[in-house]
Design a protein around this nucleic acid. Structure first.
Length: 474
RNA sequence: GGCGACGUAGCCAAGUGGCAAGGCAGAGGUCUGCAAAACCUCCAUCCCCAGUUCGAUUCUGGGCGUCGCCUCCA
């Protein structure tokens, strides 16, 4: 079965057909590095990760561009308060972003263009828009003329005539021709020079509006028309709508062919997580709270479908940690077990069926939760078969293949185990000696000590196994 | 006010016009020196009311509830 993706433009799940056979170009709206990314941001970024990984699984060579917005109003405000330049202000948050992505095991994109490094591309595009009457200058600012782009609104299906005669919109600037026209370029303000936030342009010194960066940078790295554009659902309007208008008006070519939007992560109370709405949770908060980053990754990626809203909660995170543990325990068990003498043909067929079902679920608009459900069901059956020695050569290799396929997306199974410290090894040996001497009190004491240090032991016929566990109580 | 989404067990969640995946938590059991892991068993009239249908959780209409977008936002 071929890959189907839910395209916001059509509103349906459509067969994915790339412009160029075997290649997939994707542009994903990245972070604004004015602060740490919150878990809701990270959910979107892990959705991108799932998409790029599955495109690779299907066989595409992926060219993934993820922009970094390093200039916007919030950054300007913060830099001004901090008495520094936007470049310096942004630095720690930029590295924090890459650290978080690494902690969550997100694959690196092929390009991470920064807005401030592509001002020239933006200026060129704005100039083209001005030339063709799609933009106009008003008191030094440049606006996009929405009236010049009749197709505006196709993505979000927003009826602009129903716009509320709003307080905020009207209170904006009234030198715009229409309230919906948006800024492409903002005239330099007195403080902007010190912040390092002003550039020369034929239409006056200033700084870019927010939307233009994505149009300019996607063009630079992927061309006028490209395969996939992703973002959080809140970017659909107006950001993505504006991108389409700018790009298609400037390039006279269709923009992104497929639009994918991921749903929000909500706070425990059910409300959308965002800075303006109050508190927000970062990955660092969760890790400090004792949560395993792998559990966070699994929760954000596999707990629910990307187009379903999810709520962040400790319980959900603990449940995810258990699922990760179960996957890892099972994969480890298969890996270390030698194929048994007898082969349960029914099991072999079951594994093959689950492999196919898993792939089919992912091909169906990246339905990882469904695929994972199939896998867990099989794990129970396979564990039983392993208990009874019914897994032969075929079953063994089928199971290994399945777990590799699962890990190609979730990437929590092969995540490195830290090496066993010499001291821990010594303690295990000591405990074994105590057990052999039937000094169980001493053996249990040693096991408890290790547990307190995050090492859990499992006695089995093949010997003592150890693994890392979450330390402390919740 | 306009547009839209969602409501499945204590919690998270997939899904389908025909006996309701999966995970977590819980109860009982097998195994174990004790544990852990694993396995077995148990745990849902799919928000309410109408309609269409042989049959609806799934389709249609209405209601109630939750949330999102319309304004910076992943």
């Amino acid at each position: 079965m071929a890959l189907k993706l839910h395209n916001t433009l059509t509103g349906t799940k459509d067969l994915f057909e790339p412009l160029e056979p075997g290649h997939a170009g994707m542009y994903t709206c990245g972070p604004t590095v004015w602060n740490f990314a919150h878990v809701g941001n990270l959910r979107a970024f892990l959705f991108y990760d799932l998409l790029r990984r599955h495109l690779q699984v299907v066989g595409y060579r992926v060219n993934h561009v993820m922009n970094v917005t390093d200039i916007d109003d919030r950054i300007l405000d913060q830099a001004m308060h901090a008495g520094t330049t936007i470049g310096d202000y942004v630095k720690p948050y930029l590295s924090a972003f890459f650290e978080d992505m690494a902690t969550l095991r997100a694959q690196a994109a092929e390009h991470y263009p920064r807005a401030t490094e592509h001002i020239g591309d933006m200026v060129a595009m704005i100039s083209a828009l001005l030339e063709h009457g799609h933009a106009y200058i008003a008191e030094g600012d440049v606006y996009f003329r929405i009236a010049s782009f009749p197709a505006y609104g196709a993505l979000s299906r927003l009826d602009r005539t129903g716009l509320r005669a709003g307080t905020r919109v009207a209170a904006d600037k009234y030198d715009k021709e229409s309230v919906s026209d948006f800024a492409l370029w903002k005239k330099a303000q007195p403080g902007d020079e010190q912040l390092g936030a002003a550039w020369d342009a034929p239409f006056g010194r200033g700084r870019p509006g927010w939307h233009i960066e994505c149009s300019a940078m996607s063009k630079r790295y992927l061309g006028d028309t490209f395969d996939i554009h992703c973002g959080g659902i809140d970017l659909m309007f107006p950001h993505h709508e504006n991108e389409i208008a700018q790009s298609e008006a400037a390039n006279h070519q269709p923009f992104a062919r497929v639009w994918l939007h991921s749903e929000h992560l909500a706070e425990a109370g059910g409300e959308k997580m965002s800075k303006s709405a109050g508190g927000f949770t970062t990955l660092r908060d969760l890790v400090a709270g004792g949560h395993d980053p792998l559990a966070v990754r699994f929760f954000l990626m596999a707990n629910a479908h990307y187009r379903a809203r999810i709520r962040l909660s400790n319980d959900a995170l603990y449940a995810a940690a258990e699922q990760v543990r179960r996957l890892r325990d099972f994969a480890g068990r298969v890996r270390r077990s030698a194929p048994g003498p007898s082969e349960d043909q029914a099991l072999v067929q079951r594994v093959a069926a689950v492999r196919a079902g898993y792939r089919e679920a992912l091909d169906d608009d990246l339905n990882l939760p469904q695929g994972i459900g199939l896998v867990f069901e099989l794990i129970r059956e396979a564990n039983a078969a392993l208990d009874e020695g019914r897994v032969g050569e075929r079953g063994h290799s089928e199971l290994l293949a399945l777990m590799d396929e699962v890990d190609a997306h979730v990437d929590v199974i092969g995540a490195d185990e830290p090496g066993l410290a010499d001291e821990v090894e010594r303690l295990i040996a000591e405990r074994e000696a105590a057990r052999a001497a039937r000094d169980f009190a001493r053996a249990d004491r040693l096991r408890d000590e290790l547990r307190e240090r995050g090492i859990a032991l499992e006695d089995s016929k093949e010997g003592v196994r150890w693994k890392r566990i979450r330390v402390g109580t919740e």
